[in-house]
């Protein structure tokens, strides 16, 4: 499998990268881990005349724990999301999503930014990021802008990212005490799979009465983009967590999704599994709070 010919740039700063993006427009493709781009270039699906390696962008490689937020550089390896103590301690659902992504070999190349920008409906990281209320930082020559991740995806492979922009970081508010989150995925194989469905949930309980103060539920592979399950969220908001409630939320989530039948799975099955998955991730989230 040969790669087509292209020019190669390795900018040393975000500014330099943005300048290249502006100059060459649609003909340039940013290269982070390459686990998507290289495959698509070999298949001839994309044919950039210039590849922009993000390898030297040091500021995009860090995970920073700030006062109220956690900032994850877009080029952070998925493997690093698993190994990093800050992620393990504060964003366990993201760690679970990272563990479910690809294989160890892929996780050693793939980046969090790449997983977001490729905008696959079944991607493993977006559901967890969505339930943590993640924001993405998009840079252009005009400077950075911040977009809520839930507003980022437009369709399969499509996002609000402009041709002259680069996703440089992901920002998340540090979850408060009394909160928990979980991620689950369902595939054919146990690993290295493209999920038939995946999902995450985040719960924050009111410390006084134990009711659900804040809730987010997100699902993947049941719509053209990773989605928030707003009907499920409504069913949960302000309620006291219980098995019955989680079952109801799972049922409500079926109305949130619009799955398709493709060669990987049927719409009816996906819909049915939405309930199971939502109930189970809620249980995981609750268990974490109780821990």
């Amino acid at each position: 499998m040969l790669l087509p010919k292209f020019e190669y740039d390795e900018p040393r700063s975000i500014e330099e990268a943005c300048e290249t993006l502006r100059t060459f427009g649609e003909t340039v493709k940013p290269l982070a881990g390459g686990t998507d781009l290289m495959v698509n270039m070999k298949k001839g699906v994309v044919r950039p005349s210039r590849v922009l390696s993000l390898k030297k962008l040091k500021t995009c490689n860090r995970i920073e724990k700030l006062d109220a937020t956690i900032r994850i550089g877009a080029c952070t390896l998925v493997a690093e999301l698993i190994q990093n103590q800050v992620i393990a301690d504060t964003l366990p659902a993201l760690q679970a999503g990272a563990k479910a992504l690809g294989s160890p070999l892929i996780r050693n190349l793939a980046t969090i930014g790449g997983n977001i920008c490729s905008a696959r409906p079944a991607a493993d990281l977006p559901p967890a990021l969505l339930v943590y209320g993640a924001r993405v930082v998009l840079h252009s020559q005009q400077g950075p802008r911040t977009v809520l991740l839930k507003d980022f995806f437009k369709g399969p492979g499509q996002t609000v990212l402009r041709g002259d922009e680069l996703l440089t970081a992901i920002e998340l508010d540090r979850p408060p005490a009394n909160s928990g989150a979980g991620y689950l995925n369902l595939g054919i194989r146990k690993v290295q799979d493209i999920d038939i469905i995946n999902g995450a949930a985040y719960l924050a309980l009111n410390p006084r009465d134990g009711t659900i103060e804040k809730v987010r539920v997100a699902l993947g592979a049941v719509a053209p983009t990773p989605i928030r399950a707003s009907l499920a969220e409504q069913a949960l908001q302000g309620q006291k967590p219980s098995q019955d409630l989680f079952v109801q939320a799972g049922q409500a989530a079926q109305q949130d999704c619009t799955p398709i039948t493709d060669f990987r799975g049927g719409a009816a099955y996906r819909k049915a599994m939405t309930s199971v998955l939502v109930r189970r991730v809620l249980e995981t989230a609750l268990k974490q709070i109780e821990k």
């Binding site: 294989s103 054919i188 194989r189 146990k190 690993v191 290295q192 799979d193 493209i194 060669f263 990987r264």
Partner: peptide
């Protein structure tokens, strides 16, 4: 063939 690769054509991994 829709799944002419070893990602979409799934043989058992060590975990399976």
């Amino acid at each position: 063939v829709i799944n002419a690769d070893l990602a979409e054509y799934k043989i058992p991994t060590a975990v399976d």
